[in-house]
Design a protein around this nucleic acid. Structure first.
Lengths: 199, 199
DNA sequence: GCAGAATCCGAGCAAAGGCTCAGGTTTCAT
DNA sequence: ATGAAACCTGAGCCTTTGCTCGGATTCTGC
């Protein structure tokens, strides 16, 4: 019943082939996650698909949670970068433009592979997030809150949470329904967000 | 690798104690689902928490998927009832009122136990839905689409999907963040929906 | 070339989980 | 009261999964 174990790498890869091993494991885990959900991700399956022995896998990852955790961390880090850029661009713009920029940035990581993004987000819900990932999430939230506050949005924390939830949900639903064009989602979300914020 | 197995009851309970057994299993499964997600739901754990032997469980449910599937089916059936009532009440009302009624109905099943509702919705994403549940979902969607179409909403299917996704996501996020008052969510969703629909 | 570090391998153990089956208990109808 | 049907039980089989360990292989710096 005790949770909250260490969820970092067990050992850092020093040589190129080791880095390749780690990448193969990540890639395989993402593929399996995407196809069958968190339940389908077993260390044996990941190792096999990665073309790596189970022993090698455990040399770098202390368990399957660590593999997924790193997938999540990578996605969040990427998202933070996108949002940082967007937040900077928001400076001095009106709120309609700010909404556009923030939403577009939030959708950015859905662009390359929406199904994978959805799968990783789903995994995130089932993981005890490590401190680093939590910090990333907090910083992402803080960025959005700051922009909202700059435009005198009341209860910016609440608004940020609601808007983030809406954005992810609509994007995931669209992906699940087979929508291909990420850009088609943006205007719909903009309308909803403007309505939410009373613009 | 083949899916799509029968997911109905194996045998119908005839006597009162058998019905009590089934109910205990459902209740236990919901509790475990709520506490630990789909992965934590094992037939052994469910049987133990239900105070029922594993053999009895298998007398009525062909597997753990069937238990979860029935949980989902029950929730969807309830939701359909709520939405039917709401859709009837929408007749002759303006769109603002219609939005209010539909959203309130959609939130209805979050009222009693938001955490449980969120958990069941999450389970739904990982299950191969049986025909009956799919029919329920289709009818729910059809109801919303009909109301939207009556108010000349363009692409009502798309709008219904987006609005449903937004509603669930915001409600779940609120629950996760510890919000207690379901009624506080409604006005936020109404603003978003009106904005989305351009009202 | 060579020593040592880094990496890789995969058989196999222990635990957990899905599920069956043979046999016992309770309920119902007559 | 009695036989049949419904119901319950849980030991235990088999598969899957997480993970370790001893030993083989490859790389790196000198």
């Amino acid at each position: 019943m005790t949770r909250e174990p260490p969820v970092k790498l067990r050992k850092s890869p020093r040589q190129a082939r080791a880095r390749a091993t780690c990448e193969a494991v990540q890639e395989a885990a993402a593929r399996i996650l995407q196809r069958g959900g968190v339940a389908a991700v077993s260390t044996n399956a990941v190792a096999e698909l990665a073309g790596v022995s189970i022993g090698s896998l455990y040399q770098y990852y202390p368990g399957k949670e660590a593999i997924l955790a790193e997938l999540v961390r990578a996605m969040r880090a990427e998202m933070l970068e996108d949002l940082r850029r967007a937040a900077r661009a928001c400076d001095g713009q009106d709120i309609t433009r700010a909404i556009h920029l923030l939403l577009a940035a939030s959708l950015e990581h859905h662009r390359a592979d929406p199904a994978r993004a959805a799968a990783i987000e789903e995994a995130e819900r089932h993981l005890p997030l490590d401190a680093e990932t939590q910090a990333l999430k907090a910083e992402i939230a803080a960025l959005v809150i700051a922009v909202l506050r700059a435009h005198d949005v009341p209860e910016p924390e609440l608004a940020a949470r609601d808007l983030a939830a809406m954005t992810n949900a609509v994007a995931d639903a669209a992906c699940l329904a087979g929508e291909r064009d990420v850009d088609a989602i943006l205007p719909r979300l903009e309308r909803a967000a403007r309505g939410y914020l009373g613009v």
